[in-house]
Amino acid sequence: MKSLAELEAIRNKTINAMNIRKDGENGIRIVVGMATCGIAAGARDTLNAISEELAKRNVSHATVSQTGCIGMCRLEPIGEVLEPGKEKVTYVKVDREKAVRIVNEHIINNKPVVEYTIGAVEK
């Protein structure tokens, strides 16, 4: 077990940075399907890859959360990007690599990765 003193140091460091992250509420929401179908298809890795990439790139205008079964189990892991005032973008069969690209191109550079969207895959 690592020491709780270390955790306390993290707490103190975080408190100073806390106010900066508050603007996440009106930002982009990324939602990953985490029902049995999603989990079996690898959604845990997808979700973790997205969180890690958001943290690594210091993205404060997007948050990632989980939902249940989106209804297209054969296309899991599915990730939806919801941005206020824009149409929802649904990405399918999102593995770790695709997740990283989606964060960088869509969330950071505002250019959806068209080839990973449900429209492109389900043609």
Binding site: M1, K2, L4, E6, L7, E8, I10, R11, K13, T14, I15, M18, S51, E52, A55
Partner: peptide, 20 residues
Amino acid sequence: NVLMEVDITTPDVLVWLKEN
């Protein structure tokens, strides 16, 4: 209890937890 007002989902906390 240690974190108090700091959210447990803070990335640095999760990294600590994972390593732990």
